[in-house]
Structure formats: structure tokens, C-alpha cells
Computed example of a mutant assay.
Amino acid sequence: MGWLTVIALLAFLFLAFVAFVSYKMVKPPRLIEDWTPKEFGHDYEDVTIETRDGLKLSGWWIDNGSDKTVIPLHGYTSSRWYSLYMKPTVEFLLKEGYNVLVFDFRAHGRSGGKYTTVSDKELTDVLSAIDWLKKEHPDKAEKIGLIGFSMGAMVTIRALAEDERTCCGVADSPPMDLDKTGARGLRYFANLPEWLYTFVKPFTKLFSGGREIHPIEYADRVRKPLLIIAGEKDPLVKVEEVRAFYERNKRINPNVELWVTDATHVRTLKFHPEEWKAKVGEFLRKWMA
């Protein structure tokens, strides 16, 4: 076997490995658990939300007798069932008196869709959920707030900029530069070197059909109340990246707040639950009133 053949074989094996990693990244495992809002003493309705691009999302509608609804948005590889932050967030919102509409993003949980685009087409999911809410329960949607975690936080920022029906949002651990977070994610999720992301990225776009989304680009567009939560020990999102968004956004948005904690990624609620609930509760009461 000549050297050229060996090099060609190694190149093929490398590209095959990169393609495999890319495929696994855009097709995350589906997290499904068995708890329901009945654990909190609330009846709920299983709902199917048809997206503007024809997918079917699975979710819960929990009518809490209010004219205000909050939509919690989960992160990449998670779902509405994630006990780390989704379950306590749903419980918290119900105790605060809000209606809750919670669903699984495409390619997550029980929702349709083969691939995640990590905040590109997921915006369509959120806008479609708001469409559903406005059509099915218009009297329950006088005010609509969002609480997003990680990928859901990215979508929260985008929705505040692009949909007039949202009134305010909380973005917990939002990646600001998806290239940087994606590279760190290879190490965090798969224990692979960050430099591999340069080769993985084109394949993820090829498989998913998604566009690159960098929330930092929305810093000049969000003019609604926004609470951003960042953790100093976050291995995926650096505080300085979040702070750069905050400093840029506050030039046009007097109602943006930044809360920096000592937590890791999306774990402020876990490590500082009472502080998180107090801070987020105060923010929502102020802007959902």
C-alpha cells in the first residue's frame, strides 16, 4: 500500500468520524420522564402544536386561571421533563399564579423532527406555540413571558427581538457565540478536542439544514425587559461573552438586567434556588403586571 493510499484512507476515516460526531450532535437522545404537573396539584392538558413549517410539537397546557402565561424553554439535549431546571421552573411558575405552556423543541422529548438546529428553527417552534396559545386561549395570553435555559435562552433573546407578542424574558446561561460554545461543547458533552469543531460544523449544517445563530448579533435589537443569568463556573458560556451582550444591549434597552452567580451552566436554580426564584419572581411580577 503506497503512502498516497494510506493518506487517503486516513482522510476518509477522519471525515467519517467527523460526520458521525456531527450526526450525533444534531440528533440528541430524547429525554422522557414520567412526572406530570399533577404532582403540583394542577390539572393539565396534553397538547399538540403544529409549527409553521409543518412539524408537530408535544407539550402541556396548564390553565392556572390567569390572563398571563409564561412559556419555559428547555436547552439542547433536554426536554420539558428535565428535573434539573424544567420541573422546578414549572412548579415555581404555577405557585406564582401564571398559566404555563411548556413543550419539547423539535427533535427533543416527544416532539416531531429529526434534527435540532440549536436555536435557528427552534424560534419557529416558539412562535408556533404562541400562535397556538393566541388561537386556543386568547383570554389567557394578555401577557406572554419566556424563561429559557441555554438553547432556550438563545431562543428567548431572539423571540423578544422578533415577536411583538412577547412582553419580557429570562435568559439563563445563553450562549452568545455558537462557534465558541459549540467547540467547548465537544469537550463538555463528548470529551473531544475543541479544534475538531472546525470540521464538525459544516456537517452539522448539512445534516440539520440550520443557519448559524449568534445571539450577540441581537444585542442591538432587543428592546424589551430581559433578565440574563450567567455563571462564573460555566464551562460552555463565558461570563465576559454574556457581559459583552449586556453592555451593548443596555445602550438601547434600559430594562436589561445581568445577574452573575457562582454556578455552572444552567445550575443557578439548583445551587441557589431561593435566590433564583426571588430574582426571577420579582422580574416577572414587575413586567407581567
Rank of each mutant, 00 (worst) to 15 (best):
residue 243 R to G: 06
residue 207 F to I: 15
residue 59 G to A: 12
residue 198 T to W: 09
residue 157 I to S: 10
residue 31 L to R: 14
residue 138 P to W: 03
residue 261 T to C: 04
residue 25 M to H: 00
residue 2 G to W: 03
residue 289 A to T: 10
residue 202 P to A: 15
residue 96 E to V: 09
residue 103 F to S: 07
residue 236 L to H: 05
residue 253 N to Q: 06
residue 222 V to F: 01
residue 117 T to E: 08
residue 4 L to R: 06
residue 116 T to W: 00
residue 38 K to I: 13
residue 81 W to V: 05
residue 52 R to T: 05
residue 206 L to H: 12
residue 75 G to E: 07
residue 219 A to V: 06
residue 126 V to P: 02
residue 67 D to I: 02
residue 93 L to S: 10
residue 278 A to V: 13
residue 260 V to I: 15
residue 280 V to L: 07
residue 111 S to G: 02
residue 213 I to D: 01
residue 11 A to K: 09
residue 185 G to R: 00
residue 227 L to G: 11
residue 265 H to F: 07
residue 244 A to D: 07
residue 2 G to F: 05
residue 169 G to F: 07
residue 233 K to R: 10
residue 268 T to W: 03
residue 289 A to D: 10
residue 186 L to R: 00
residue 179 D to W: 15
residue 28 P to T: 08
residue 74 H to V: 08
residue 57 L to N: 03
residue 98 Y to C: 02
residue 23 Y to H: 13
residue 196 L to F: 04
residue 200 V to C: 04
residue 242 V to R: 03
residue 92 F to E: 06
residue 192 L to Q: 04
residue 186 L to V: 03
residue 217 E to W: 00
residue 24 K to A: 06
residue 49 I to F: 01
residue 213 I to A: 01
residue 274 E to T: 12
residue 45 E to N: 11
residue 278 A to S: 14
residue 212 E to W: 04
residue 256 V to T: 15
residue 282 E to L: 12
residue 178 L to G: 03
residue 49 I to D: 02
residue 278 A to Y: 11
residue 110 R to K: 15
residue 258 L to S: 08
residue 63 D to N: 11
residue 185 G to C: 01
residue 254 P to Q: 12
residue 274 E to I: 09
residue 96 E to C: 08
residue 218 Y to C: 04
residue 23 Y to M: 06
residue 121 K to E: 04
residue 85 Y to K: 11
residue 125 D to S: 06
residue 5 T to F: 10
residue 228 I to V: 15
residue 159 A to G: 02
residue 250 K to A: 08
residue 86 M to T: 12
residue 171 A to G: 08
residue 285 R to D: 14
residue 80 R to G: 02
residue 78 S to H: 15
residue 220 D to W: 10
residue 18 V to W: 01
residue 282 E to P: 00
residue 167 C to N: 10
residue 48 T to F: 07
residue 122 E to Y: 03
residue 189 F to A: 09
residue 7 I to A: 14
residue 46 D to T: 15
residue 183 A to S: 14
residue 108 H to D: 14
residue 237 V to E: 10
residue 53 D to S: 01
residue 14 F to P: 01
residue 204 T to W: 01
residue 51 T to I: 03
residue 81 W to G: 04
residue 103 F to N: 04
residue 163 D to L: 02
residue 52 R to M: 01
residue 170 V to Q: 01
residue 129 A to Y: 00
residue 131 D to W: 05
residue 180 K to V: 15
residue 178 L to E: 12
residue 274 E to A: 08
residue 253 N to M: 04
residue 185 G to L: 00
residue 159 A to N: 05
residue 247 E to A: 07
residue 1 M to V: 11
residue 218 Y to Q: 02
residue 32 I to A: 08
residue 257 E to H: 09
residue 181 T to N: 05
residue 165 R to S: 14
residue 260 V to D: 08
residue 177 D to E: 12
residue 228 I to L: 15
residue 181 T to Q: 09
residue 118 V to R: 02
residue 225 P to H: 12
residue 43 D to T: 13
residue 84 L to K: 14
